[in-house]
Amino acid sequence: MPVRRVLAVIPSHNEEEALPAVIASLREAAAHLPWELEAVVVDDGSTDSTASRALSLGVRVVRLCRNLGIGGAMQVGLRMAHRGGFDCAVQVDGDGQHPPGELARLVARLEEDPAPDLVVGSRFRERAGFRSTPMRRLGIRWFSLLLRALCRLRVTDPTSGFRVYGPRALALFDRSFPYDYPEPEALALAQLSGLRIVEEPVAMLERQGGRSSIRGVLTSSYYVLKVTVAMVLAVGRARLRED
């Protein structure tokens, strides 16, 4: 049986401080994986030395000439995995929130029968690790309810970026992936496209460097509003296609 290949996509924007630790722990985790793991850092128009730091660490680096946001950066990685013939791709944030030690459990879910297309690492399935601030948890709860009402999808952590994308998910997101704050909307898209989504409990960490793009009342409110409208529109678009 041929060895299955996993591409770890690390979207990074000004993450030169956290990146060495993330890549080191990724290498350590790769040693325990039964699959062949390759890492790619997608430098999302960083103004610091993220790209050169990543190159010096010996991983593949894709440099975006301007900042596209997490969605645009992630789509590049997923496209790379799809076109490069990888069996799956895993998102590992460059800020160090996703401990690569949890990868083995996430990837192992793809061996199930029937195999899921998307495995979402959830902070809320078990009470362990960093579980975000109360305000953020409120927003996460809102998106969970919205996904359940609009798409009949039950997930506890819709904003988690710690995910494994199987071949069908790679094909879908190569074609279309939301650009701004993509996580909940991507779940809606996947569910409406008939993909099988499962959750796996993971323990996450606090970010190891850099700053979150969602901070302050205005940005957070815009985030919730934008994602809510985008999800409603995604459902409407899917219904129109069905008709």
Binding site: L64, C65, G72, V76, R83
Partner: peptide, 8 residues
């Protein structure tokens, strides 16, 4: 931007 980065 995405295609350029992949080609590069």
């Amino acid at each position: 931007t995405q295609e350029l980065a992949l080609l590069q």
